[in-house]
Write a protein that binds this DNA or RNA. Structure first.
Lengths: 138, 138
DNA sequence: GTGTTTGCAAAGTGTTTGCAATTTA
DNA sequence: TAAATTGCAAACACTTTGCAAACAC
């Protein structure tokens, strides 16, 4: 499943995004950008980093997740239960949110078709369209 | 703009939804269900209630907004900035979220067209589809 | 070296909860 | 009167911030 095994893949990825590749950021990048797309909260990233023997404070995790998001390496998913979920898949796609399990899943972007999106008002552009299909127990 | 001026409109509205019409709930209902659709945070509802000389604690505002939501009188909009926004319009419709002003606006449900929504897995049904069009500065 | 980043702890938000006092039916 | 609801304050969960020490270039 992994792609791009190059030795300096992660440093370049960060540099290209204008982010200085510190030890902590490389550790975070290693666990986020391993080729497998994921949805993770800051808390989960922090726990995973510690499990990997990378000592990164939670504050630094938050700071860097936001920095990665600003740089377009991550995307924040608006699930609505008042906690930030970061998605390593930054391409246009939708989500299902299972209210029973609390899990988020990707839906290929062509699984739904959205048409007739209204024109934004003067001085604004459509940054993106968030579509979340909420699933409940039958 | 107001509709249904009947004297016991709000008590009936709550009773019909299986909610006991207490003084506080009636005050909240009066300010929420006046015929003008709104998007409000708990904090905003609380402030407005106090401005109207209704003494309702913030905790009670939260409790009742959730109760109203569970009863289908309100809907929670997943804007994603880690705070709950309640919408008095419970019909199928979408939103634009202006990242510059922080304001939420309704879009008539027929302004966008969503097709090919995938079938939910066994034991689940589509509760609803949340669509938020995020607008940024040009 | 110089400016950036980190870690920690502390403060800040927004939200929920426990429980005695009150209110509703 | 019995059961539900309220208010308050305290607890809670998540996130951000201030600043000295550590690090990258």
């Amino acid at each position: 499943m992994r792609r791009h095994h190059g030795k300096n893949r992660l440093p370049s990825l960060l540099l290209t995004s204008g982010i200085r590749p510190t030890r902590q950021r490389l550790a975070l990048a290693a666990l986020l950008f391993d080729g497998v797309k994921k949805h993770m909260t800051a808390e989960q990233v922090h726990a995973l980093a510690r499990r990997n023997r990378a000592h990164i404070s939670l504050a630094t995790v938050y700071n860097n997740l936001h920095q990665f998001t600003a740089a377009g390496l991550l995307r924040e998913v608006p699930v609505g239960h008042n906690r930030s979920v970061f998605d390593t898949n930054t391409e246009a796609h939708c989500h299902t949110f299972d209210e029973v399990t609390g899990l988020l899943h990707d839906i290929p972007s062509d699984a739904v078709h959205l048409s007739r999106v209204p024109k934004p008002p003067m001085g604004r552009k459509v940054a993106r369209v968030d579509i979340v299909i909420r699933l409940a127990a039958v």
